[in-house]
Amino acid sequence: MKRDVTITINGVEYSGNIPIRMLLVDFIRDVAGLTGTHVGCTFEGQCGACTIHLNGEAVKSCLLLAVQCHGKEITTVEGLAREGALHVLQEEFHRHHALQCGYCTSGMLMNAAEFITERPDADDEEIRHALVGNICRCTGYTNIIKAISAAAKRNASV
């Protein structure tokens, strides 16, 4: 019923003897103590607040078990800023007022962080389409689109 699990999160190894049924999002929040990854669903996996990177890809950590990620590397919102420098998306979210309560923000950032490297030239409609898996209740999305678009452009020009 329990397993030894080691997961590298944002470059740091976290280990625990955990129940097989433990969700990845609970490992991240309770075992690793990284509470930037949020939960907004019961079981449906619709809200996207729990989005993280697994193998560099944005996935929902509420639909994974921690045991499935044994030996793997994941990145959470806490790993987005590097050496004290904000990620372009974090800067642009700030500049464009792309967050209000902030609850959806981690998931938005993680989904967008992968998306803008994959599609630096995306137009607004494509960005909107890329965000289908992340609900924001506060902002009405417009500023999020602006922020992601600006970040993608900056990223591409580096």
Binding site: G45, G48, K60
Partner: peptide
């Protein structure tokens, strides 16, 4: 299908 995250899994 679904969304980007769902399509990655």
């Amino acid at each position: 299908v679904g969304d980007r995250q769902v399509r990655s899994r």
